[in-house]
Design a protein around this nucleic acid. Structure first.
Lengths: 340, 340
DNA sequence: CTGAAAGCGCTTACAG
DNA sequence: CTGAAAGCGCTTACAG
């Protein structure tokens, strides 16, 4: 292995001081054009690259963003929720575009959030991505805030949460998809997904759903079954629904993953979708376009979300003013409601 | 924003030298148990964390792995191939387990590979992930090697490539899936996917396919159509096949993404799968289980692959001996061949 | 425009 | 077991 060249090596070869090398490589206007060119040429010949650790240490910044991805602790350990995977891709791209590095780490909600502090030393800012559980989560976010760490949270803006949030309007998404079903003439409904405080995203979707039903006078004819965001949970929930004999005209799932399980269980029970019952999901993950029938769902724009998260965090790092941003949620109509 | 605590602050509070603080925090056996406890307690109270830049600079290592993800330059800019996304997830997990950070960066094949050198300063080693184009790629990998950079490549081991490779046996995968089709009684075939030198993975799959046909005497009754790994390319290729009037009994796609496009185009042309033609894919991406009909495909074990990539790289970093590893490819039988 | 010098916050020989 | 000191490779006031 060759020895790595340092700025001193270049200084020596170029016949200038190391300070000048540093200036030349950073395109400082203070350095003579001809000197700069010579230094840069030599640097390229030596395949020299600035040592980031030294540079960051001196500058006290890192040009790195940390992504803290935390997951529902009960979800299958080997799988990442496809929605978050899509976000990860989009965030990676947005970072690359801004010339920032992206440090990715997983975190379980139960964990001590070591990584959070760790990362605050390695990164200029943190992106928090995952389903949020208020109870646990909130004090930790508050701690981040009190530390003065720059961070942006994925999730709906909320007074209870300190810091900036970029999120999709889950309440409106719940409303929109429910209105769509009502417009199709459905009159009895089930919501499948947790709607407690530990699942704020799902809860907001549920609230949008419920309020829409109420305002149309359907509040009496709806049920709810708990499920975390997995296929199996969705499948189990529908089985319990079938057993109770309360099959409604429409099933609203809190996520596409849940909807996958719902479709599977209905198929196994020989219940026809959309003829016997309409089913809708949430997230518009890739798979939802390919199920049979294809799934009507609510889209969250992951590409935009990634860009907003990164750009907002970058602004915060530069101490510019930043604002919460709530993206609209769009209904994607496919075949699982019989409307197509 | 609070000032960040340094090891000197702790030294002061604990009444010891800064050196001792450093030793205590690194669990050096050289330090008195009682002293260590006191230092660690104070560090925790101050919410102190070691400055990674300083620590890395001093130790000349970074406990970070860089993932260079390069993509087919012609693929849709906004989408990451789901197969690589799955790999990304698995690599992230494996890194977390090994207590390494993961730096993710995108790279286009056409680019100058700045990042590669950059990353070699920020990371202890590099994972190269993407479809490889020999022409371009090879000289760059050789450069990495000559630099003494530790790296591991995703892809089939190959004498032409320097460095270590972890990959899936594409040739065997091509054989297995083709044998499956022959076992089902198919006698005429088409392969959809590039099989030139710039697409070594696809080429190996094609070779496995072709050799299997040849050994069964079907070499005459097969065609091949180029396609990069996108739905649209698959769709276009099948349209050209239909127009030529040469629809075979089985279509072997070089990737699931291609197969998605093939299924779509066949549906549009009212060609029934699997009744009129069998279709198989490659990768076993999530979507492939949900298409209609569900897709028979070849699985690459992404979870294992991620672990092998990370663990092999870690060994290389520690200057242990490392070996290429070729994972077997498994046929996943679903409905698109009519065998179920 | 350039150079000599300080210092970012650690780790680790070296000396005791 | 502990401390004083050097040094990792940069950037950036400071002085000219």
């Amino acid at each position: 292995m060759k020895e790595k060249a340092t700025s001193f090596d270049i200084a020596h070869l170029a016949g200038v001081s190391q300070s000048t090398v540093s200036r030349a490589l950073n395109n400082s206007p203070l350095v003579n054009q001809e000197t700069r060119d010579r230094v840069q040429r030599i640097a390229k010949e030596l395949n020299y690259k600035v040592d980031k650790n030294a540079s960051n240490l001196r500058k006290q910044k890192s040009s790195t963003i940390a992504l803290l991805l935390f997951e529902d602790p009960t979800s299958d350990d080997s799988m990442i929720n496809p929605f978050f995977l899509a976000m990860l891709g989009s965030i990676t791209r947005a970072c690359a575009q801004a010339n920032y590095d992206l440090l990715v780490s997983f975190q379980n909600l139960e964990d001590d959030w070591h990584a959070e502090y760790e990362d605050s030393n390695k990164a200029d800012g943190i992106i928090l991505l995952g389903y949020g559980d208020y109870t646990d989560y909130q004090t930790k976010v508050a701690q981040l805030e009190s530390q003065g760490t720059h961070f942006v949270r994925w999730g709906a803006p909320d007074e209870a949460h300190p810091g900036v949030s970029i999120g999709c309007d889950n309440y409106q998404g719940g409303q929109s998809i429910t209105s769509h079903l009502i417009g199709l003439g459905k009159t009895s409904f089930a919501f499948i997904g947790d709607n407690g405080d530990h699942a704020p995203e799902f809860k907001a979707r549920f609230n949008g759903y419920y309020e829409t039903l109420r305002s149309h006078g359907f509040a009496e004819s709806c049920v709810q079954r708990n499920a975390i965001s997995t296929e199996d949970a969705g499948s189990e929930a529908v089985k319990s629904l079938l057993q109770s004999g309360e099959l409604p005209q429409a099933i609203v799932c809190a996520s596409d993953l849940i909807a996958m399980g719902v479709l599977r269980a209905l198929r196994q029970a020989n219940v026809n979708v959309p003829y016997d019952v309409a089913v809708v999901g949430y997230d518009n993950i890739a798979v939802s376009a390919y199920t049979t029938p294809s799934l009507t769902t609510v889209q969250q724009n992951t590409k935009l979300a990634g860009e907003l998260l990164v750009n907002t965090l970058l602004k915060a790092i530069n101490n510019e003013d930043v604002q919460d941003y709530l993206m609209p949620a769009d209904v994607i109509v496919r075949q699982s409601c019989g409307s197509e």
